[in-house]
Design a protein around this nucleic acid. Structure first.
Lengths: 161, 161
DNA sequence: GCGGCATCGGTTATAGTATAACAATACCAT
DNA sequence: ATGGTATTGTTATACTATAACCGATGCCGC
């Protein structure tokens, strides 16, 4: 699997802007919730947003160390825990990896489309998927609290290639 | 989380029969596909079916060793790989654990309802959930190959308790 | 200012999950 | 019996995650 190319065709979006938006939103979310976006947390968020691919915790750790920062696994896991709690990043269960959240403002049920070829992940936020799950769960008497929905396959670009 | 009680109210189903059915079906599936259900594989399947809870690979390993069998991680991972390939067990991504498949005959898209209290997992097989995912994926130009759908929450029994 | 408290990050150690690589064995077909 | 293939044994190691403890920092009330 290719993992080093840019996450999307660079012609198709300004990734710098992408990251900048994510960081600004994060500042706003933290302010609103009375939480602090410390340098470590901010840097981890920035690193997660460095691509549109889910990133492993240890890859983030390596990047922190490359910054010259003293870091150990708890450093990155604590930052991720914080960011996850605020909905600023998602965990991709089927990859044990983390992804920047595209819509952190809302307390949403997200779904992911993960390309097995290029590794990019797109985030959906379709309420009817969540609703369908909840409906069948309810029929079984089950009270849903969290949903994990991840589709593996090929993105548009990798299908043609 | 309670993890030692029986998976369901023992009055509600004959679990011995449950396991027996799973093993017979497995024999049939293997025969039909020209694969061998060796003693290790059969035993791992039986252990996975010992409860209606997802079981970790290392718990299976401990059980194999308790049998007096010489076993190491690859022993159980190879058996699981085999059983997964035949659709006889599922992997629950959000728990890194394995669950006997309730409907191994069909090549189905399964969904799971996992109780965070008692640890039991119920398997659904609702085509409309898969269809909803596929529909939104298609709109994004994404070709779905596998879906992971796992709902965490409280089962009927644990809600009343 | 000072003490007390809470939060955060650093550090070490360890738990938990999974696979690579190679050796030995069992099984089957000829 | 012989050779080939599938399976299992064995050792080592990689990858993912958390526990526990400590020191630094900053804030708050007095």
């Amino acid at each position: 699997m290719k993992r080093n190319a840019p996450a999307r065709d660079p012609g198709k979006h300004d990734h710098r802007k992408c990251v900048h938006t994510a960081l600004s939103t994060a500042e706003a979310v933290c302010k609103a919730r009375g939480e602090k976006l410390t340098p470590v947390r901010k840097r981890v968020l920035e690193l997660v947003w460095a691509s549109h691919r889910p990133v492993g915790a240890y890859a983030l750790l390596d990047s922190l160390r490359a910054d010259g920062r003293s870091a150990a696994p708890p450093t990155v896991y604590r930052a991720l825990e914080f960011l996850l709690a605020l909905g600023l990043v998602h965990r991709v269960e089927s990859l044990n990896a983390y992804l920047g959240c595209a819509h952190p403002a809302s307390d949403h049920a997200a779904q992911f489309l993960i390309c097995r070829q290029c590794g990019t992940a797109a985030e959906l936020e379709e309420s009817d998927i969540a609703t369908a799950i909840d409906r069948h769960a309810k029929r079984a008497g089950f009270a849903v609290e969290r949903r994990t929905v991840e589709a593996m396959g090929l993105c548009a670009a990798c299908q043609t290639a």
